[in-house]
Design a protein around this nucleic acid. Structure first.
Lengths: 124, 124, 124, 124
DNA sequence: GTGGTCTAGACCACC
DNA sequence: GTGGTCTAGACCACT
């Protein structure tokens, strides 16, 4: 499947897989009821240990995004909107720490917003 | 210089110490030429093993912020401005990833700036 | 990759390990993408505590020569040429001090070059 | 006295003092029978702990360069030539390690001699 | 007193 | 299995 995994990223691979699946759902490329690639297929596609994919799927199941169907594999059970909302929440959470540290280091809100806008506009 | 360390934080203690020292320099509480608390003193103050403090100091030395003088202790060698700049750069770098992911997930720039402002204003 | 470590040398073990790894890369015995012996394996081979190897690897990572991949091990990321160049620079830097002191003490350039050639030719 | 000590150098201060005294003798500014500055005077001049100067003098005495005279302080007992010879020997010894490492890393003798000549000519 | 290195061994996260 | 962090405690060199 079409996830691109960055082996050099500090964030764990199972987490990159989780995010990748969620993105596919948000983009509408995976819809409710669709079947995910099997663990083995996904693993060989992205050159990763099957255990790692299994962990990602398991955790996506625990959060209610996908579901295991005996003998059929995993299917999507959450719609794009729900997924998007939870992604937003998580990312906002992730932004908290660096922002508060920037605040402590004496940056102004205006300067910060400028930096953010810059990243938004000039990065791929 | 009594840093407050959060033992329950996911970020390693030696890293919290590094950030703490940098912050003191940025705030001007530590200036060029000032002596840091000795490894043992800092360790006992923040209830941590001396090795952990030693690692933090050593890495701050490697990045050019402080310097060891045998038998005497560590002194600050980088001025507040330099330290602030490098902290800004690092934190901006840290912001990049979550922001670009938010962009991919379909948030609007206005919504994002609103979220940022919220974090800035309503969090300690 | 069996480095030979001299426990009686004044230079610290972690540094000998760093230099050893760099040399293997320079010699071409380790190439970009190759995996290093695991920390534990290297440690048991050279009869040293794993922490010591870990420190060497960590510092090689900080200088950009190798890279850790969680759960998999360390891989080489810098090519032999880059490593050789930086080794040359560092060693030239090390030569500076004793040479300038010899100059101050009144040795002639010819005599110095003779001494150097002697060391080169008659030492292992 | 006229020694310049570099607090940022990695080499220990007592060693810098020893080298400084030897240099004065080689240069002829201190001759056989001359009195060295007292430990306290030297210590206050170069802003260093008296213990450190004491250690330097003690070791210079052990190697036979100077000698303590009860109530009179230290006097020079070795002539410039002898001192120069031993300095040469020590420095050659110091050159050995980096040179052999350069050899191992694949530099050629010609290239090395060129580097040495460069240092000699273009550095203070 | 100061920092620097090393060992032994525990616990955790990731693959 | 892999690396990453932390503790406890020893020993050394320098001031």
């Amino acid at each position: 499947m079409w996830l691109d995994i960055d082996m050099r990223s500090p964030s764990p691979i199972y987490d990159q897989i989780k995010r990748g699946v969620r993105e596919e759902i948000i983009k509408g490329k995976l819809k409710e009821g669709d079947t995910l690639p099997s663990i083995r297929e996904m693993a060989s596609q992205i050159r990763v240990n099957p255990n790692t994919v299994a962990r990602a799927y398991r955790e996506l199941e625990m959060e209610g995004t996908i579901m295991a169907r005996q003998g059929l594999g995993y299917i999507v059970v959450s719609d794009g909107e729900k997924v998007r909302d939870s992604v937003f929440d998580n990312l906002s959470e992730e932004l908290k720490e660096p922002i508060l540290r920037l605040k402590k280091s004496g940056i102004s809100l205006d300067k910060l917003l400028e930096v953010i806008e810059n990243i938004w506009k000039h990065q791929s």
